[in-house]
Amino acid sequence: MKVLDNEVSKFFENPLQDAGFSLKKIDSKNAVVVKLRRSDEKPFEILRCNRISCWSFSERSLKHVFMENDTLVGFAGFEEVRIEEDAEQVAVFAKPLVEAFIVIVRGPDKLNMLKAFYEVLWNECNFPTKIPKSLLMEDSFDETLDRRSAFLLLSSNEEDEVKRYLKKGVRVAVKLESWGELQRFYNVGVRCFLLNDFKDEYRERYADCFFILQKANVASALARVDGLIVNVKEFSLEEIVLASLVNRLLPLYVSVERFDSKLLDVLGFGAFGWRRCTNSIFTRIERERERIYEISYVSESNVPGRVWIDVSKDSPEWFFEQSETRLRKQTVEREDGRYFHFYREGVS
């Protein structure tokens, strides 16, 4: 693998000096961070690897990490990401946004290298964590259940519907056809938008908005928007598990087609047309054995559960725990706006 025209091993040996980038070693993660700044140049080659021995996600928008043997190269903060493939090689071309990072990690397996990569982005490169939401269609939206926890997704030609729901206090997301529509819907009170492209200057102007991109590479979308819609229907179970690691930094919004929503929910994917139930910040993914991942999570009834993913099989295996002490909760809002949560024994 070559990064910026240098063999990756060189980055771990003597510190490379180059006017175009700075380099930081993270010994605790066996990683190196290469930092590049915006230039007026055209997109240039940031990575080249062997097509046969190299692994990456099959979905194009998730091709922001490439692995070969014990090395991972991942990148973030680039625009105009272009991936060129021929029979022998894969080359990635891109152009730094304001600040761009290439992270090289060495580790024992895919899962641990990916975990280290996202931790380095979060901790060393200051990419913030994000919380996934539900984007629900009108036929599945329950006004009493979803009012505070989900967005009702409407299209930009349904302006009357948008206004009607906003008046009821429902959180509405609007799928925009053009940027010109943003200001109009912002003025009526919409704060969540689905877009085809994104301009950084709008982040400042609409600081209180929630932006979800429909077509982009993760490397361009990280830390700029609040979510990315991806198509995972051709993914293997292993790819779903590995792709879920992105979710803490950039929720990947997926619809339920091949996969059941419970697995996607537990793994912290953003919900596109289905309802999120669990709090995925409690989810942990471990590599149990060579071909088995164990996912531990906290269920919507607050009991720990586990899922086993055997990558050679096509269905996850679920293990539940039964709670012996179940409390029934009743939440009351007092006149002064304070919430009181009453708990009694009994199943809710």
């Binding site: 409390l327 002064d336 919430y339 009181f340 949560h341 009453f342 009694r344």
Partner: peptide
Amino acid sequence: EYDLVSFENR
């Protein structure tokens, strides 16, 4: 009447 309760501090 209550058994256990958690509420936002006044």
